[in-house]
Amino acid sequence: MILTVIFYIFVATTAVQLIYFLCFSSILFVKEKKKTIKQIPVSIIICAKNEEHNLQAFLPSIINQKYADFEIILINDASSDDTLEVMESFKEQHANIKIVNVKNNEAFWGNKKYALTLGIKAATNEHLLFTDADCEPVSRLWVQSMTQHFSSKKTIVLGYGKYKTQKTFVNLLVRFETFLTAIQYFSYAKLGSPYMGVGRNLAYTKSEFFKTNGFIKHIQIRSGDDDLFIQEAATKINTAICLNRKSFTISNPPVTLKEWFRQKRRHVSTASYYQFKHQFFLGLYFASKFFFYVSAILLFFLMSWKLITPIFGVYILSLYLVFGFSAKRLQEKKVIFFLPFLDLFLLLFQFSIFISNTFSKPTHWK
């Protein structure tokens, strides 16, 4: 009786996972349409806290974008290092740079959203493009590629933020998790239910920001300046996705498991504030995957492998097909070589984050 129940769980969770794979495959059919090049005025916004070295290394790649009309809003979020001095040195050389110097406010201590709000208000242009101080575009056409998706209806553009490749296991896991997250939020948006974006590569209009009263509804939550805003503002009508390879940004990844664990705890903590439907479907994906692997392992020991292997094989084949083509699209092909192992290990890692966040909550954004 128990064995039969486990088998039914195995079959049911396999079916659920295959449905998710089918949904994820929707991004494979997104075509980057050739559009008339338009050079709308853009304000690039970078919020930096203790980022003097990253600004020196990566800000030139923003300044040298091949785009006619853009300004750069540099927000110094109460840094304790020489971030402000670095910003001022760049401003002396480039007239299109504007500095917003944010000092600690007792009511919004350590709150990135407060600093971002001041930067957005200081922006001259209607169209805003966001990235982080530790990011650089992969090409000089980043601004052009992202802004091509703006239109009278499309006021939010979701982009992809990659991590640099390093020859370590942690790096492989970080890049796989980033890749999986991108598949999810791109496919949800493609299917008409956008739920998040990443601040490393995100664009929206000033009007859209003020339409939702900015971050005011979740200003008390330390993280979520990107995904919680998208939760509130994005719809199937006003949201576009950009998969053009020239639109990607790339960042320095966390180098240790401890550092990455702390980062992901902060990111995952915002999920409890998502709309119920997004919480449900995101949770169902990982819950069904968990029970799929648990039931599969039990059945391989308790039942004939001849019965289990074909079903398990369909799962692995589907995983490789959807993730393989998606990895090619997002230029993450190297993660595919260790796909089943990464799939399982990431599941365990995320489960440990869930347990950790249940007992304590992360605080500051830096």
Rank of each mutant, 00 (worst) to 15 (best):
I2N: 15
I6K: 06
I9H: 06
A12L: 14
T13L: 06
C23Y: 06
F24E: 02
S26V: 11
V30A: 11
V30P: 01
E32Q: 09
K38W: 05
K38T: 15
K38Y: 14
V42Q: 00
C47A: 08
K49Y: 14
N54D: 13
F58K: 00
P60M: 08
I62L: 14
I62P: 00
F70Q: 06
L74E: 03
L74Y: 03
D77P: 03
A78F: 07
D81H: 10
V86A: 03
M87F: 14
S89D: 15
K91C: 11
Q93E: 15
H94Y: 15
H94E: 10
N104L: 12
N104Q: 13
N105Y: 00
G110A: 14
K112V: 06
Y114C: 03
G119I: 02
G119E: 00
D132F: 01
A133T: 01
R140A: 14
T147N: 06
T147S: 15
Q148H: 11
K153R: 09
T155Y: 02
G159T: 04
G159W: 03
K162E: 04
Y163W: 09
Y163S: 08
E177S: 04
A182K: 04
P194A: 12
G197F: 03
G197V: 05
R200G: 04
A203I: 01
T212R: 13
G214I: 04
I216C: 10
I219F: 06
Q220L: 11
R222C: 12
D225S: 07
D226Y: 05
K236F: 03
I237P: 04
C242F: 05
L243Y: 00
T249Q: 05
I250Y: 01
P253S: 08
P254K: 03
P254V: 05
V255M: 13
E259K: 11
W260V: 07
W260G: 04
K264L: 12
S269R: 06
T270F: 06
A271K: 11
Q279P: 06
Q279E: 10
Y285G: 04
K289E: 13
S295D: 03
S295T: 10
L298N: 07
S304L: 12
L321A: 15
F325C: 14
K328L: 13
K334G: 12
L342W: 09
L344A: 06
F345Y: 13
F354Q: 09
N357M: 12
